[in-house]
């Protein structure tokens, strides 16, 4: 059987890409291999580890749980774009400052998930951070520093708001 393919149009980090891909190719692999966004990390390839988390039409999604053909017409944002945005930049800086990573494999997914949490819940408890990030595995840190970094980012944002107000 020849490999069934379709052409899809993806807007990635505000730039449109038209690619012809095998139907069975995960969005994560298209982003990495066809389009060069290697900040999308592929860990478990079956939706457990969260390393491949991206934003599709504004909502965090595991890009290994979406086939490229399903994402035709979608707007996708990866860590390459998000880490430069104000809503995420402080998180990235705090992750670095707090040593909230060791090997860094989980970090793109962790940052994108944490940014979504803080958008929904600007003042989370540690338990809420742990519950929200329960879909993102880290095999190095033991999570303590990651939760610290998210809490500190939240506190920093509240302080910044307070100063302005």
């Amino acid at each position: 059987m020849s490999e069934p393919r379709q052409s899809v149009s993806l807007t990635v980090n505000e730039e449109r890409h038209d690619v012809t891909v095998p139907n069975r190719k995960h969005l994560a692999d298209i982003l990495r291999e066809d389009l060069g966004f290697t900040g999308v990390h592929v860990g478990c390839e079956h939706g457990v580890c969260g390393a491949c988390t991206v934003r599709i039409d504004g909502a965090i999604t595991r890009s290994c749980l979406v086939f490229g053909v399903q994402a035709d017409g979608a707007e996708i944002e990866t860590i390459e774009y998000l880490s430069a945005q104000s809503e995420t930049r402080d998180l990235v800086d705090t992750f670095v400052a707090e040593n909230a990573l060791q090997c860094g494999f989980c970090t793109p997914g962790m940052v994108i998930s944490a940014a979504a949490l803080l958008a929904e819940t600007p003042d989370p408890t540690r338990e809420e951070v742990r519950a929200y990030l329960s879909g993102n595995y880290c095999r190095c840190t033991g999570y303590q520093a990651i939760v610290d970094a998210v809490m500190m980012t939240a506190a920093g944002r509240r302080a910044a708001k307070g100063e302005r107000a």
């Binding site: 939706g47 969260g50 988390t53 599709i56 909502a59 965090i60 999604t61 595991r62 749980l65 979406v66 998930s113 979504a116 949490l117 929200y132 329960s134 879909g135 993102n136």
Partner: peptide, 9 residues
Amino acid sequence: VAHPAVRNR
């Protein structure tokens, strides 16, 4: 039911 990224889809 699942984790936030899965609940979105």
